[in-house]
Design a protein around this nucleic acid. Structure first.
Lengths: 112, 112
DNA sequence: GTGCATACCTCGTTACACTAGGCATAACGT
DNA sequence: ACGTTATGCCTAGTGTAACGAGGTATGCAC
């Protein structure tokens, strides 16, 4: 049910800083209050596509435990893409609000 | 880009009263302030599916112009489905807001 | 009578989220 | 020592749903 918005969701999870795939999944789950429990088969292909498109950069890192992880970082392009997605998202929400006859403008959040 | 929410959008357009396909498309466009310009190839199959699932009922009507139109009406099931979709939608918006670190609760609209 | 808006329809493509697997290592319990 | 769970990565195939492209027909204005 997140069709079309998945890229935005994944990019948003990386605004706090670099993270590896598994942690991204958990961060999304945490920040969405459990609403988004994304399966790995959904997230990993997205990460690969985002990196291929230049929105993310990845490198192999070694955790204290000794486990290898692929850590992803937002690129400048990625931040821009997220900002764009976010603007589209807010227009989308406003449009749906209009459909429901709800007041709009509630989504006029300041940029950060 | 409205993937997964199309049923809700079409159902919402019919809350004001019965309408035929072409009018539904224009009503959606009007109420969304031009954000949603749905092609007919998108809407008609949705109407057929919704009727097949019992959320809409249709009948052929004759306009003053003499033109034949298929007029759709929300069923009780349809109203319920719309209410459900709407609740899911608001949870969805809250979840995305959480992802962005925005304040939530902005979508706690009263039922109408 | 030509063009445009209205009004309906279907078929095929495509994009994409997800299911269902597979592989490997660390931590923990017994 | 051994099994189980959690961690961590990956891909191939599937199903669905929105959409593009096309087809048909009528009323109206010029």
């Amino acid at each position: 049910m997140l069709k079309g918005h998945l890229d935005m969701i994944v990019l948003a999870a990386l605004t706090i800083g670099p993270a590896h795939g598994y942690a991204i999944i958990q961060e999304i789950q945490r920040r969405s209050a459990g609403a988004f429990e994304l399966p790995e088969g959904t997230v990993y292909p997205v990460l690969h596509r985002l990196e291929k498109n230049g929105l993310l950069r990845s490198r192999w890192t070694i955790a204290e435990s000794g486990r290898k992880r692929r850590t992803y970082t937002l690129t400048r392009q990625g931040r821009q893409a997220l900002a764009d997605h976010r603007a589209v998202w807010h227009r989308f929400v406003d449009a749906i609000s209009g459909l429901f006859g709800e007041a709009s403008g509630a989504t006029a959040w300041p940029h950060r």
